[in-house]
Simulated scan of single mutants.
Amino acid sequence: MNDIFTPAKLGPITLRNRVIKAATFEGRTPDALVTDELIDFHREVAAGGVGLTTVAYCAVAPGGRTDRHQIWMRPEAVAGLRKLTDAVHAEGAAASAQIGHAGPVANAASNRVPAIAPSRMFNPLGMRFTKTPSVSDIAELVAAHANAARLAEQAGFDAVEIHFGHNYLASSFLSPILNRRKDAYGGSLLNRARMAREIACAVKEAVGDLISVPAQLNMEDGAGGGLTVPQSLQVAAWLEADGALDALELTAGSSLLNPMLLFHGTPPLRSFGKVLPGPARFGFRFVGKSFLKEYPYQEAYLLERARHFRRAVTMPLILLGGITNLDTMLQARTEGFDFVAMGRALLREPDLLHRIQADESARSACVHCNECMPTIYSRTRCVYRPNLSREPIQLTLG
């Protein structure tokens, strides 16, 4: 199916092609608002040829950030976000806002409010215990997602991608190792999926068909006792039946328990050990090797898991993970995936798609070293990419 570079529908919108710039936190918002650097980052990717670029990420509440420098959705953020979407649209691409709540992945010390988790646990980023939300708290969090989606639409976004992955809040509710609740939001898989389903329906009700509503869903946590592929398949089937989502972007891994399952390739142990905030850096010396596991890189490394989802649901699916060349894109289309998402390859070469269109044999210059991962603390970038004109922003996380 050689239609990668032809227009494609994503719910109510039409993208110029089937390639999406995946959400990769940019580290360019030191005051939790849009900056010229953030606009330039997405303008460059849009000019490079993607159909849709994803702003990562837009928290639905101030306590839902992994650190206090990230954008959270409130009226004061709309004007800057509108400048960003205007810049992306001027390059012919569409713009998506990834909305969500970091839950137990939030940095309570940086945000200066407790992190939230379905059950009480120790928050390693904030070095303190989490808050367990009541049923009324959960209702407020669901409403916050709907409000964030409305603000995104006002800011000119073409889509909002809901974050149901990596053990952020909704994902942590799905995970039996993190969710030990005894109420309507815990216990059975049906109960653990309740929050994600309520969020999806609330967001859809808030924006209707004005913009597209995909979601990023964990296929598995990659940790003993965590969410498994069979469980996630059932969640995907429920989300499809609810009819609130326009697509699922399939991901894997846990920011708390196993982050390298998402990335594959070389774990950047030494670099992470240098940039983590003080207490976390100390703990990383002892658990770094077990925390950042090594998974050999190969093209389309999440495809084997994703195939199960393609067989189980009929809704549009977005394949993520190791998409760097036209051959892999075409394989994804042949196997029934509607879109592909690219991350690290576009950090290295924002114009990679133009190169591929000019030469179908073009290959990404990304070497899968993952040295870009620790740069989230200082301005996310490929460390081997030349001609970056500005010095990194230094963020204080404590």
Rank of each mutant, 00 (worst) to 15 (best):
R74Q: 15
Y57R: 03
H42N: 11
R381F: 00
E349W: 00
R28N: 13
A345V: 13
F25A: 13
F282P: 01
G51L: 03
A155F: 02
M260Y: 11
I138R: 15
L395H: 15
A159D: 14
G343H: 05
V60S: 05
T396Q: 05
N370S: 08
L395N: 04
L210E: 15
G187I: 04
A22Q: 09
C201L: 12
G49V: 02
S96W: 01
L84N: 15
R150L: 08
N258K: 02
H101T: 09
S134G: 15
N191D: 07
P230S: 06
D3M: 02
N370Q: 10
L245A: 01
A345Q: 09
S361C: 05
A32L: 05
L10R: 07
Q70C: 11
L320G: 03
L125E: 08
H264V: 11
C372S: 04
Y384V: 07
P62C: 06
L397V: 13
I376K: 05
A108S: 15
R18W: 05
L319V: 00
G156V: 13
V229G: 03
V55F: 02
A144D: 14
M329K: 04
D338K: 02
A247C: 08
G92H: 10
I393W: 12
N123C: 09
R18P: 11
L169C: 02
T328R: 11
A102C: 13
P124A: 06
W72K: 04
T29C: 14
T132C: 03
P75D: 08
I177N: 10
Y57G: 11
P214S: 06
R120Q: 04
A332K: 11
L276Y: 12
V142A: 10
R181C: 05
V213D: 12
V313A: 07
L248Q: 12
F309A: 10
D36G: 12
V287W: 02
L125F: 14
L320P: 01
A106W: 02
M127N: 13
G63M: 10
K131E: 15
P114T: 09
V207R: 01
A22K: 05
E44A: 10
S188Q: 00
A362M: 01
P30D: 09
H354W: 06
R281L: 00
A95Y: 05
P104T: 00
L178V: 04
D86S: 12
F337P: 03
R181Q: 09
A46N: 08
G321A: 03
R194K: 09
F25Q: 12
L317I: 11
V213T: 14
L346S: 08
S175N: 06
A196V: 11
L10Q: 12
G225Q: 07
A79F: 04
H308I: 06
R390S: 14
Y301A: 02
L388P: 10
D158I: 12
F263C: 13
V275D: 03
A280Q: 14
